[in-house]
Amino acid sequence: MNTPNSNRLSRRAVFQWFAATAAALSAGEAALFGAESPLLQSAKPPASTGYGTDPELLRAYKPGELWPLTFNPVQKACVVALCDVLLPADHLGPSASSLGVPEFVDEWVSAPYPVQQEDRPLILEGLAWMVSEAASRFQREVPALEAAQLEALCESVCQPERVRAGFKNAARFFHKMRGLAMGAYFSTPAGWAAIGYVGNTPLAKFDGPPAEVLGKLGVEQTVE
């Protein structure tokens, strides 16, 4: 498992880590979700409108272009760490953070639409939970966690039926993040290669499944 790639934090970020950790620890685990935590000062997204009912469809967009983003360096570092433990660089492709997945999550929690605004508190509170867990379990900031420690965090929330009582919301956060990260990851060209999608390219003719696939399925092509 790779360690997160943005583990060099600015002085300002380091200060924010101290503040975040102190706040998380004083809030206590149970109070992190749904609490009026100082970590959630930006729980309400800045007022902005969406892209409207007739947006320009032919150009490429980047997160932050249409509405302001949310994450401070602490939150960003947590998202990078989590996305890269969920979808690391390996034989199937690059890491989530190299495919813009954390920026997508930021775009998501900042979006002025109902679905995204509903996810926003869960994700921001979940990031605070990561800060708190890293500090209380490992006495570390999230970017400094070793791979095994990040995996230990995941292990405590990844099995919904085995999650202990105090971690129910953290488990919801984990599953929300995993779904978002997978969606974002596999909708990139590198993600297509990782999952096995081939297409979005013009063809002179459509051949259907190759013989190897037809054989594996025990079917024949029935259309000439």
């Binding site: 433990v85 969920l86 779904g179 969606g183 993600g191 990782a194 979005n200």
Partner: peptide, 22 residues
Amino acid sequence: MPNGSNPVPDDLIQGLYGTKLK
């Protein structure tokens, strides 16, 4: 083409993350 939503239902990937998830 995966369309931006999670291409695999949660019940097929319970407990998974990392390379096993991919």
